[in-house]
Write a protein that binds this DNA or RNA. Structure first.
Lengths: 201, 201
DNA sequence: CACAAGTCTTGATATATATCAAAAAATTCA
DNA sequence: TGAATTTTTTGATATATATCAAGACTTGTG
């Protein structure tokens, strides 16, 4: 992999720390501990970050690149559950939070750069710096609300409305992700999404 | 409403504290603070716990009774988002976590009894007892995973499979909730659910 | 207890979206 | 670059589920 200068690393961590500090102003001691016990990892385009059935033992902070999470149906069909990118926390929610075998696969859609934090290190940080639970709670709340919105759209909106909502809320996903993955995320076939986009529907 | 003896209250709180302690062993000081700054509230069957457009300023712990959360579509149709009952935390997720006007309505389906905790009190507890963020984080994670499972079922399963999954995972909801509400939660019409249940599909 | 109001079922038909198949376009890589 | 592969589009047909309408149940209430 590439090596990074200290200045480059500083910039990467500044990114993540800005997010944390905005939720709860953290002491230099916590930030130094985080920096000391995490590292920068690189995933090649198309590579698997987390395999199906493995336990998600790392939490990633996205620095560059798009990642998708997907399930595999019994018939082999892949169902995309979500997309994560720069500034996002990247995990298999179920697996990371419960430390059980993941139902999801995490796959890098681009060459992807992340800060990687091991669960045991994170738990140690939660223990040693209880105020960091504030950050963990706020981030969980944030992603929970996003998930709720998506579940809601699936019940309330038809295919075209779900697509329009995604375009409105996440225009970058539309441009950066192959249409087939977007279709399975929206719960529709690739053909239907193609027709929606072409104005047939 | 009714008055409760100290012994009855003890039993109610024991319920909630057991949940908390199981996530993180809390000091008597926190528990005493919680008990002192919360109260038991009663909602009559069919009454509205939280109106649409109001800010959800209380977090409830369910002691008795079923509650449903629903949205109202532009055309007036009610779409049930979830059911909460004894042992559950009852809030409008979006409204409580962001302290913005609720998109959801919370409605008591039964005569319902809850422990009520004001958001400002909760925030004070988070500040004064940072370890309580651990509990808040764990609970948020738990409900987040549940929400993920539901969003997933909506994308992956057809109507019959979604119903079967609900029966398998929450048999009590089927027996305690009118079928029309269950249908809108599953994202299908009441007629279709009726046919699924009768074995037509 | 009976009637009103709401809820659930059943049937007929309509519609959104899936599926299958093949061509067209885009992307990858040797 | 150009052939091979993958992705996307388009067309024809099939299907799951919605909608509309009417009747049968339930339930709550005076």
């Amino acid at each position: 992999m590439e090596q990074f200068s200290e200045a480059q690393r500083d910039a990467m961590y500044a990114n993540m720390f800005a997010l944390f500090n905005q939720l709860y102003p953290l002491s230099p001691a916590v930030l130094a501990t985080i920096r000391r016990h995490t590292n920068i990892v690189f995933f090649k385009r198309r590579s698997i970050i987390l395999e199906h059935g493995k336990i998600c033992r790392n939490c990633y902070f996205g620095l560059k690149g798009m990642v998708r999470a997907y399930y595999i149906k019994d018939d082999g069909q892949e169902i995309t559950s979500w997309f994560m990118k720069e500034g996002d926390i990247i995990i298999s929610v179920q697996s990371f939070f419960t430390q059980t075998e993941s139902h999801e696969v995490l796959e890098a859609l681009d060459d992807t750069l992340c800060i990687s934090l091991r669960i045991d290190v994170l738990e140690e940080i939660y223990r040693k710096f209880p105020e960091f639970n504030f950050v963990g709670r706020k981030l969980t709340e944030h992603y929970y609300i996003q998930m709720e919105n998506r579940a809601f759209s699936l019940r309330m909106d038809d295919a075209r409305q779900r697509y329009d909502r995604l375009v409105a809320q996440h225009p970058d996903i539309i441009t950066r992700v192959p249409i087939g993955y977007i279709a399975s995320y929206l719960g529709i076939s690739a053909e239907t999404l193609s027709r929606i986009r072409s104005g047939t529907y």
